[in-house]
Amino acid sequence: MALLEVKDLQVSFDTASGRIFALNGVSFSLERGEVLALLGESGSGKSVTASAIMDLVPNPPGAIDRGSIRFDGAELLTLSGNERRDLCGSRIALIFQDALAALNPVYPVGWQIAEMYRIHGRKPKGGVKKAVIDLLTAIGIPDPERRARQYPHEFSGGMRQRIMIAMAVALEPDVIIADEPTTALDVTIQAQVVDLLATIRKRGDAGMIFITHDLGVVAELADRVAVMYAGRIVETANVFELFEDARHPYSLGLLASQPRVDTDEDELVPIPGSAPNPLALPSGCAFRTRCPRAEGLCAEVVPPLETVGPGRQAACHFPVSPA
């Protein structure tokens, strides 16, 4: 049984100009000890997926229309508010993109990490204070006793992101969801945070969902990748297969449009056009308007996510043939 299993999830938002389907039947599963990357560009629905799992979809205007999220055998969507809150933070934890916004500016960071224990009524061995100091040491914050008493604004961006990570792993959750944790950081700091996340995943057997648009970070950290486009998963594959032998034209397009720092390329091959308007998604396959392989069928039938090889799926009528 998978640790976390999302099936046919549909999330919509009411806006003044109509209903937007942020997720259109998203299914994936996460095993213990695995890092699954949700890769997609802005508006693809990757962050909404995280919100849905964490029960953070604002309602109204948002609503989970259908689907299921099973965690450790239990259906999350039918749990009561209290039961759900108990799980979130203790067994499923979220690392936010914007650590400065996610930390409360009026409390010291040590207090905020300790809050995790207090909310869930946990009494760690040796007391809360020791646990906080140990955590800060573990995530590489020098002089933790003094730093614990400081406020978020006294930390640099990278340090704040470390503190977010400390809060997320404080209660040793089973699932860690990292929502673009490195996007706002400079490369050298980003490398530190990626390393820290890699260390954390080696520590226990937690499963990690890593949400990002950065192919490089995916290659560094992920075991398996789910590529999202316009509220759907268009391809899932293990990380090696995706980078060497992508089947969906969108995945291929993403790889081709990414310049590399270690080689010179003549010209980038961008994907033409821009992401579709969520209010007026193209009929059939949402990617067809930008797709070089699109044919008549693509406008009529939404391609289902089908198995295209051992452990990998793609949602395309005309997938790229194996390399």
Binding site: G273, S274, P276, N277, A280, P282, T289
Partner: peptide, 9 residues
């Protein structure tokens, strides 16, 4: 190359 998808209004 032209974009057609962003013609929201």
């Amino acid at each position: 190359m032209t974009d057609t998808s962003a013609e929201f209004l």
